[in-house]
C-alpha cells in the first residue's frame, strides 16, 4: 500500500474556475521523501490542503495511509502531521505551552514521543519560556516541526518549510528530515529551491497545476534531452546577448558565475558555439559540457 495515492485530483477557484490543481495522479511510497518542486502559484499548497483534509477537491480522489481524504477525514487528521507554509502556532503561548497544547489535542504527551523530537527540541529548550511570537524565523520553524511530530504521525506534510531561510539553516533542516525518514515516517515536502530537490527520493516538478515531470532526481536529470555546456564570464549580459542573437536553436541563461547553453546538437555543434564566443568575447573562452542540475531541467520543461 502506498502512503499517499492521488487519482485525478483537481481544484479550481472562483467564478472563472481558475485551475489550481489540474487532474493530478501520482503515488508516494511508504517511507519515501517526496518533493513537490515548483514556484508560487504551482498548486502546491492547494494539493497539501486537499491531502490534509482541509480542502475538498473538485474532482478525483485521494488516499492517505489507505484512508479516503473526504470520507475518512477524521481518522486522517489523527494520523498525519502538517506544517503549513505560514507560521500557524499560537504566538501568545510559550514554546512549551504550544507543544503541550498540540500533544494534548492529539491525546498524547511530550514525554511519550520525546525521542522523536528530542534532537530538534534540545535546540529550543533554552527558550521554552519564550512566547512563540518572539522567536526568530529559524526557531519558529523548528517549533512548528516539533508540534507537527508530537503525535508520531505516519505521514508528514511540510509546505515550504525552508522558504526565506538562509542556506545554512536550510541544510540543517534537511538533515533533520533525513533522520525522520530513518524512523520510517513518510514525508511530502514542497520547496521553491531547486537545489533541495536532490535531497528527495522522488520529486514532482510542478507549474500552474500541472506535473511537468515526476521521477527520481537522478532520472529527471538523465532524461534532459539536449546538450548542456557552461562557460565562465565576467560579463554575463553581453554573452547572453551574443548567444541569443546567434541562433534560436540554443537557449542561454545565467547560472551563478556561468552562462549555461542548452542546444540540440543535431542543429548546432559545440565547436560552432566556441567559435562564436571566441570571436566576440575573448579567445580564452572554452565552453565545457556539464551534467544538468534540477534547475536546468525545470527551465527546459518551462520552455517546452
Amino acid at each position: 500500500m502506498s502512503a499517499i495515492e492521488v487519482k485525478g485530483i483537481s481544484k479550481w477557484y472562483g467564478k472563472q474556475k481558475q485551475i489550481a490543481v489540474n487532474s493530478l495522479t501520482f503515488e508516494v511510497k511508504k517511507g519515501e521523501v517526496f518533493g513537490l518542486i515548483g514556484p508560487d502559484g504551482a498548486g502546491k499548497t492547494s494539493l497539501f490542503r486537499i491531502l490534509t483534509t482541509l480542502l475538498l477537491p473538485d474532482s478525483g480522489n485521494a488516499r492517505v495511509d489507505g484512508l479516503d481524504v473526504v470520507k475518512d477525514f477524521r481518522e486522517i487528521r489523527n494520523r498525519i502531521g502538517y506544517m503549513p507554509g505560514r507560521f500557524s502556532l499560537y504566538q501568545d503561548l510559550t514554546v512549551e505551552e504550544n507543544l503541550n497544547f498540540f500533544a494534548t489535542i492529539f491525546g498524547t504527551s511530550i514525554e511519550e514521543n520525546y525521542n522523536l523530537i528530542r534532537e530538534i527540541y534540545i535546540q529550543l529548550e533554552p527558550f521554552k519560556e519564550r512566547r512563540a511570537g518572539k522567536l526568530s524565523g529559524g526557531m519558529k520553524q523548528k517549533l512548528a516541526l516539533c508540534c507537527a511530530l508530537i503525535h508520531k504521525p505516519t505521514v508528514l506534510f511540510l509546505d515550504e518549510p525552508t522558504t526565506g531561510v538562509d542556506p545554512v539553516s536550510r541544510k540543517e533542516f534537511w538533515e533533520m528530515l533525513g533522520r525522520l525518514k530513518d524512523q520510517g515516517i513518510t514525508i511530502m515536502v514542497s520547496t521553491p529551491y531547486m537545489d533541495e530537490a536532490a535531497k528527495c527520493d522522488r520529486i514532482a516538478l510542478i507549474q500552474k497545476g500541472d506535473i511537468l515531470a515526476i521521477d527520481t532526481p537522478e532520472n529527471i536529470i538523465n532524461s534532459f534531452p539536449e546538450k548542456l555546456y557552461r562557460v565562465q564570464t565576467e560579463d554575463t549580459g553581453r554573452m547572453l546577448k551574443i548567444l541569443s542573437e546567434y541562433s534560436s536553436g540554443l537557449y542561454a541563461y545565467a547560472s551563478g558565475e556561468y552562462v549555461h547553453i542548452a542546444f540540440n546538437d543535431n542543429l548546432i555543434s559545440p565547436q560552432e558555439i566556441t567559435i562564436v564566443l571566441r570571436e566576440h568575447i575573448s579567445s580564452e573562452v572554452s565552453p565545457e559540457e556539464i551534467r544538468p542540475n534540477i534547475e536546468d531541467c525545470f527551465i527546459h520543461l518551462l520552455r517546452a
Partner: peptide, 19 residues
C-alpha cells in the same frame, strides 16, 4: 529578497530589469 518563490525563468527575467 525580491525574487522569493518565483520560477527560475521569471527569476532571470527579473534580473534583466535589475541590470
Amino acid at each position: 529578497e525580491p525574487t522569493g518563490g518565483v520560477d527560475p525563468v521569471t527569476r532571470r527575467q527579473f534580473w534583466n530589469l535589475i541590470y
